[in-house]
Amino acid sequence: MKRLLAPTYVTFIYCFFYLPILILVFYSFNDAHYSLIWRGFTTAWYQLLITDQDLWLSAIHSVFLGFCAATFATSIGAVTASSLFRYRFYGRKILHTSIFVLLLSPDIVLGTALLIMYTLANLPLGFFALLLSHIAFCLPFVVLTLFSRMKSLDKNIFEAARDLGATDTTIFFKIIIPLLWPAILSSWLLSFTLSLDDVVISYFVSGPEFEILPLKIYSLAKLGVKPEINALCSVMFVVTLIIVMTSQFILRKKN
């Protein structure tokens, strides 16, 4: 009895995590508008999604935004992490504090604070405002992932490289990047998912002419539960699931 308790409990929690989503995916194939009863398999709701021009546009916007934000955040993050790792420089403390503040402050505070900043700077809300904000909230994750990975590297490598006459730039491109590429790739993927999923910060800094997918889903979900939204959410879930699994796999394999 006692030996069964732990596995039962763990299974219960995993059911709690995954069942609601699995049910959602399952019912997105149900051939009925409101009913719970299974009326047969259909892909009609998915076909409805494919023909929706507005949805396509916001999906393209989101992917483009996520791509740019992840790329910038990862490159800036790689440079930041390696300078934090290798140098003691003026402003290092400020840099550390900034990352800490960005990481821990509630999303809504960051969102409203950025809104005020953009308004004062006369930056129109829209793509650029979104991009800058997404880079800002992805960056701490990238820096921390890379920084903790760098600490596990052999310090002698850097000294050997320096003794052999390598410059800082050479060390960055020839040593840090090749050694850290799994962590870099997985940070990129995680930044991409973070950007694709963000609602709270985007809500404050997005403009009417650049609609993105999470906000679109939010406004659709406010209207109630509908089969086509079930389908849309299922697609989004499967996409993020694949990305997250891939990034975890890359991180663990090299470990």
């Binding site: 609601p20 989503i21 049910i23 959602l24 995680l190 998912t193 973070l194 694709l196 999923d197 609602v199 999470p214 889903i217 939010y218 979900a221 539960v225 939204i229 959410c233 989004m236 879930f237 993020t240 699931l241 997250v244």
Partner: peptide
């Protein structure tokens, strides 16, 4: 890591 908006919708 997956979207909490989508998970909230699933609960809905």
């Amino acid at each position: 890591w997956t979207s909490s908006l989508i998970r909230s919708y699933a609960i809905m």
